[in-house]
């Protein structure tokens, strides 16, 4: 197990290093050097030179950039004098994380349930219904679902608040809009996995031991079928977290996504790059955790060593 964790850790660290190196060189490639253009005020220019060390040779800049990141310093805003990326993250990320965690939990539970229902009713109306919901969920983007929900439930029916983030009622629509695509993905995967497991030998053994169908489904089929679903939780987290960009915009949630889009609109390159690095590293860490969990749950993975 220790070897497995070490292996995963090394891969994650290399990935993180590649990501920050790419970001570093992309900064150098930015057209027209926006960091030092005339429009940038002197104080901010000072911030930029301090953070990136534009006056030093390239390899010193690189070392400085990496050591800044190791210290947890993600840089300064290019537009606002005293704003750092770290401050923005500290202020806004809790909202995004709150929304993201709700969406991951909601998507996992609903997706797995839908998949199980579909598989147990294979080629019956409930199966077709679940899979129809799933394919619609995959096809309709969150930025379509969000406004649609607002229009129906907030503006027409007046059941839920239109936007903002002030209590449970406010969380319902954003969570649903954000997680629909992932619900669909998980449901399809869970269904396929359930149908795959049905044909395994241990299900036959369970049947011949005389276990009841309920016991077989709960104790053998579902428990084994969930395994592949866990592997997609990493990518699902990534999808949901980037999905918050638009969902936060639509529902006026003061999360990181809102600042991200603001940064893009203001051409605040250093802000956008700093936040992108943060997102990237966060998601690489999330993937690492999912890998470890998978290794704990499924011994075949960690013994396989890969």
């Amino acid at each position: 197990m220790a070897r497995y964790i070490l292996n995963r850790l090394v891969i994650s660290l290399i990935t993180a290093w590649v990501l920050v190196t790419i970001v570093f060189f992309l900064v150098r490639l930015l057209p027209g050097d926006p960091f030092l253009s005339e429009k940038v005020t002197p104080e901010i220019k000072q911030n930029m030179i301090k953070y990136y060390g534009f006056d030093k040779p390239l390899h010193i800049q690189y070392i400085r950039y990496i050591s800044n990141l190791l210290k947890g310093d993600l840089g300064y805003s290019l537009r606002y004098k005293n704003r750092t990326v770290n401050e923005v993250i500290k202020q806004a990320f809790p909202y995004s994380a709150d929304l993201g965690i709700r969406a991951v939990i909601f998507a996992t539970i609903v997706g797995i349930t839908l998949g199980i229902i579909a598989a147990l009713n294979r080629n019956k109306p409930l199966d077709y219904l679940s899979m129809f919901i799933a394919i619609v969920g995959i096809s309709v983007p969150g930025f379509v679902i969000g406004p649609l929900l607002q229009y129906i439930f907030a503006i027409k029916l007046k059941l839920l608040p239109v936007a903002q983030w002030k209590g449970f009622a406010y969380t319902i629509m954003p969570t649903f809009a954000l997680s629909l695509g992932s619900i669909a993905l998980i449901a399809r995967l869970m269904r396929a996995s359930m149908l795959d497991v049905v044909n395994q030998d241990y299900i036959k053994t369970a049947k011949s031991k005389g276990l009841s169908p309920t016991q077989i489904v709960w104790k053998h089929q579902i428990r084994n079928a969930i395994l592949p679903v866990i592997t997609v939780l990493g990518p699902v987290t990534a999808t949901l977290l980037t999905g918050t960009f638009v969902i936060e915009q639509i529902f006026a949630i003061p999360g990181l996504g809102k600042f991200y889009i603001l940064g893009i609109q203001n051409l605040d390159y250093s802000m956008v790059l700093g936040m992108t690095v943060f997102y990237g590293l966060f998601l690489i860490a999330a993937n690492f955790i999912v890998d470890i969990i998978y290794g704990i749950i499924d011994p075949r993975i960690r013994i396989g060593g890969k």
Partner: peptide, 9 residues
């Protein structure tokens, strides 16, 4: 390694 970096990023 490229695959491990989220696509949207």
């Amino acid at each position: 390694i490229m695959y491990a970096i989220p696509y949207m990023i």
